[in-house]
């Protein structure tokens, strides 16, 4: 029986107050298990990113529970949340969010910097992570601006996995990429998943969602059901 990595119990997120309340999530209950590769799919404004932020401890629910690796996170202090994020969660963003003035290696090392890991160990881990993310070690001394979008996203994946997180969260990871780069990124996710990495991808693109094992459909802040993915429609088929 696989263990749950993250559990959301009746999570509600309300933005604003009084008459101008908007609901981000209207009571979401969801469990992601170890080794899973899940896609959360829904139209824009459906609450996908809010849901991902809840799982990633970037935001606190208005009500409901978020349990990550067995720890109830909703009542933790922000410094404790930061440490949990650092230990248990890796993020990949649509915009890559690499720091332009730092080299590829320095960008990948950032989660380990927060952890106070010595430089030598960091350098080795950054290299390993970049290779695991289908990147080329020759990028390490380069600045992100010297790489293409697809390459930058693989650097971002390397940064997300360098700390060996239990859960990898990706918010529209292919949204800023051409189809071929998107396919390479999804192939990277699939191979990481094959090696045991739990992954949740938020997307509105069925070609991306079909690469996962499980598709969770969301609309208006509610989970409206799940769908069996069709791997034959996964974007990696174009490679």
């Amino acid at each position: 029986m696989p263990k749950p990595v993250v559990e959301l119990v009746d999570v509600v997120k309300v933005y604003g107050s009084g008459d101008v309340k908007t609901y981000g999530l209207r009571g979401v209950t969801l469990t992601i298990y170890e080794g899973e590769f899940a896609a959360i799919m829904g139209p824009s404004g459906s609450g996908k990113t809010t849901l991902l932020n809840m799982m990633g401890l970037l935001d606190r629910p208005t009500s409901g529970k978020v349990v990550i690796a067995g720890i109830e996170a909703s009542r933790l202090r922000s410094s404790q949340l930061a440490r949990l994020r650092n230990r248990f969660i890796g993020f990949v963003f649509q915009q890559f969010n690499l720091i332009p003035r730092l080299t590829v290696q320095e960008n990948i090392e950032l989660p380990l910097v927060a952890r106070g890991v010595p430089r030598r160990i960091r350098a080795r881990k950054a290299r390993e992570a970049l290779i695991a993310a289908a990147g080329d070690p020759s990028w390490l001394p380069k600045k992100p601006s010297q790489l293409s979008g697809g390459q930058q996203q693989r650097v971002a994946i390397a940064r997300a996995i360098v700390g060996e997180p239990r859960l990898l969260l990706a918010d529209e990871p292919t949204g800023n990429l051409d189809r071929k780069s998107a396919a390479i990124v999804m192939k990277t996710f699939m191979s990481l998943n094959e090696r045991g990495q739990t992954i949740v991808v938020v997307t509105h693109d069925p070609e991306v969602a079909n690469c996962a094992h499980r598709i969770i459909l969301i609309r208006d802040g509610r989970i409206i059901g799940e769908q069996e993915p069709d791997r034959s429609k996964c974007i990696t088929r174009i490679l």
Partner: peptide, 16 residues
């Protein structure tokens, strides 16, 4: 602003 948000997402604490 955004960069600081990224650092926090990666696990930098407020104190850091």
């Amino acid at each position: 602003f955004r960069e600081i948000g990224v650092l926090k997402a990666l696990g930098f604490t407020d104190m850091q």
